[in-house]
Design a protein around this nucleic acid. Structure first.
Lengths: 195, 195
DNA sequence: CACCCATGCCCAAGCTCGTCGACCACGAGG
DNA sequence: CCTCGTGGTCGACGAGCTTGGGCATGGGTG
């Protein structure tokens, strides 16, 4: 076996190149040639690590999800109940430049996922995980009295996910009406009503 | 002046071709050649009615918005206050097959609007209109006592728009968790808290 | 140590798509 | 009947993604 190259590292490096380009000039400037140049490769060199552009973008999409989950995990720490709910939502919401750039990528995938089974399965799985996580934190919040006992949890989960996903879209379409302040105000209003 | 052709009618016909193709196979399958074929034209024939593809897609996007607004206008009628708020939201939300198909198209456009100033300006304008409309209905609801006097309206508008836009995305990614029942439950929960 | 060949990588050709311009058909006006 | 502006077709071109061939490299193998 000749020439050892860490495939996973190389894939990560190429994905990072995509994210850097997208952050600079938008997803549409991320052509294969541009990506290759940014990653220090020749035109067809990427083909060794991703079969096609679709697969590369799916990897970028996965990376964003896992980054969000990683940040959420760190932010939540030992927290429970409503604090954990709030921190998870705050990590999902596009509150800074970094996450707005990630939202750009995520939203541009939503439209494609409609007719792409692999991608919509991926989204579905991540969304389910968030639902389950939110539900569990809310249940603990109800147990410790932060949330009234008569509150049904599923509609709250639905609301939180719809709101956070809506922010992803609105921050791109209506940036001046989707500031961090206004986003957190909405989130806190939702949570305040549960007590 | 030779050969009379109703330009507006032709433009509408081409836009409908785009919507049919998008409904069938997603926005990315709507190539100019495919659109031309669907509209019964040759490759370059569309250029007589739309300067470029961007302009055509903007027209398609506008069409969906105006359809929604037309339906909302009819649904609201003489209603005021919270009833009007509820009816407008219900028209925006993807509650039936027709509107889920429109959501498919709309969300596909969101991804494009990210890197298209003209389209995001359009989106921004329509979103502002909805914001203003919701704000006005909520103000009348506050005046007639349906909404408590101490409720700040802007966060409520933000919440309603984020939620309805979020449903557009979630109905595509998580259809089984975004049923009409669960969507309306969330909407009614939001509205109920204002009283 | 010498050879082998799988692997990494580059380059160029092939295909699709959006756009542009040349060309033809037609019909209203002179 | 002629003119010419409009509707429409077709092919060419540039840009983008993909594919396949070819070259270099360096770990296995005898």
């Amino acid at each position: 076996m000749p020439k050892l190259v860490d495939h996973e590292a190389k894939r990560r490096e190429i994905v990072h190149a995509v994210l850097r380009i997208t952050k600079r000039g938008g997803l549409h400037t991320a052509t294969m040639r541009e990506i290759a140049a940014e990653a220090g490769q020749a035109n067809g060199g990427i083909a060794h690590y991703f079969r096609n552009k679709e697969e590369l973008l799916v990897a970028a999409f996965e990376h964003i999800f896992s980054e969000t989950n990683r940040r959420a995990y760190a932010a939540i720490g030992e927290a429970e109940g409503l604090t954990a709910v709030r921190r998870l939502c705050l990590e999902i919401m596009p509150l800074d430049e970094q996450r707005i750039a990630e939202a750009r990528i995520a939203v541009s995938f939503w439209g494609r996922a409609v007719h792409d089974t692999e991608m919509s399965a991926l989204q579905d799985a991540d969304m389910r995980a968030w639902r389950a996580q939110l539900h569990s934190y809310l249940a603990s919040a109800r147990d410790n009295g932060e949330v009234r006992a008569d509150v049904e949890l599923q509609p709250v989960v639905d609301e939180l996910l719809a709101t956070t996903m809506g922010f992803q879209a609105n921050v791109l379409m209506n940036p001046e009406a989707t500031t961090p302040q206004r986003q957190t105000a909405v989130l806190d209003a939702i949570l305040a009503r549960l007590g």
